[in-house]
Computed example of a mutant assay.
Amino acid sequence: MLNERKKAIFLDRDGTINVDKDYLYRIEDFQFEPKADEALKILYDLGYVLIIVTNQSGIARGYYSEEDVEILHQDLSKILQEKGIEISKFYYCPHHPTKGVGKYKTDCECRKPNPGMLLKGIEEFSIDTSLSYMVGDKKSDVDAGLKAGVTSIFLNNGKEEVPKDLSENILVFKSLYDFAIFLKNK
């Protein structure tokens, strides 16, 4: 079918897929969260379009370039392809409203909790929001998902307190792997 709507998993990167290291931009510093690569394989095998949506204020602050982030994402994509996983798209926000330098100092629609990156993915890949999820370890991830009309998943990996004002319909898991097993068994 030409106009078939697809289901997607929108994924935060740092703290969700990889260990959150301040301003990560080199593949040699990349380390998967426990079983995150296995989780991605499960989600991919379940037929979800996998889309990364990541705030990268290190670009805005001048710590590294957009090219550095794109190289990291190309390297990560190759590693995942070797494991039988395809990331359909990496979206990143290079802006910061107060800490940005030059053209990157802006309050934009792409920086989570705004839904801009998700909305681009929904349009570009003809995503059915009723079948799709946003997974992340911060309230800004959850909020972006809600604003984009997808089900939000909060990863309570112990690094950030579970926000007290989370909606009761937000699902909470300890890890991306636990969420993947939940979907597999659904």
Rank of each mutant, 00 (worst) to 15 (best):
Y133G: 03
K35L: 03
K35W: 08
Y63P: 07
I9R: 08
L43I: 07
F10H: 10
F90Y: 06
P34F: 03
L24T: 00
L166R: 05
T98E: 14
N114I: 11
G116S: 02
Y133E: 01
I87H: 05
E82L: 14
A148T: 00
G47T: 01
D143F: 15
A60H: 06
A180F: 11
R5V: 11
N156Q: 14
R61Y: 01
A144L: 01
Y44N: 14
D178I: 07
D107V: 02
Y92Q: 10
D128T: 02
E4C: 13
H73I: 09
Y44S: 11
M134P: 09
S140Q: 15
E70P: 04
L176G: 05
D128P: 01
F32S: 03
N157I: 06
D165I: 13
K174V: 12
V142S: 01
L40Q: 07
G84C: 02
E86V: 15
Y63C: 02
K83W: 02
E28W: 06
I153R: 02
E161D: 13
L80Q: 07
G102Y: 06
P97G: 09
I51C: 11
Y177K: 07
Q74W: 15
K7D: 00
I153W: 00
P34H: 05
R61A: 03
P115Y: 03
C110P: 10
D141G: 10
L40C: 04
E66P: 06
G116I: 12
Y104N: 03
F179T: 00
K99C: 12
Y104V: 05
K105T: 06
S130K: 15
L183W: 07
L119K: 12
L171G: 05
S88P: 10
K174I: 11
S65A: 09
A60G: 02
F90G: 07
E66N: 11
V49T: 14
T151K: 15
C93H: 00
Y25C: 05
F173E: 01
S152M: 09
M117P: 05
Q74R: 15
F30K: 00
Y177H: 07
I17R: 10
N185E: 14
Y64W: 08
S77D: 14
S77F: 04
D128R: 01
K35F: 08
K112W: 00
G47H: 01
I153H: 06
S57M: 12
F154K: 00
K103W: 03
V101W: 04
T129F: 12
R13A: 10
A180T: 12
L2C: 14
L76V: 00
Y44G: 07
E161P: 15
N185F: 13
K7A: 00
P97M: 03
F10N: 08
G47K: 01
E160P: 10
M117H: 02
T129K: 13
S175Y: 05
T129L: 08
Y48Q: 04
S167I: 09
D178Y: 04
L166K: 05
K138V: 01
I181C: 10
I87Y: 04
P97K: 12
K21P: 11
S152F: 02
D137L: 07
Q56H: 01
Y91H: 09
K78A: 02
L119S: 08
C108R: 06
I85Q: 06
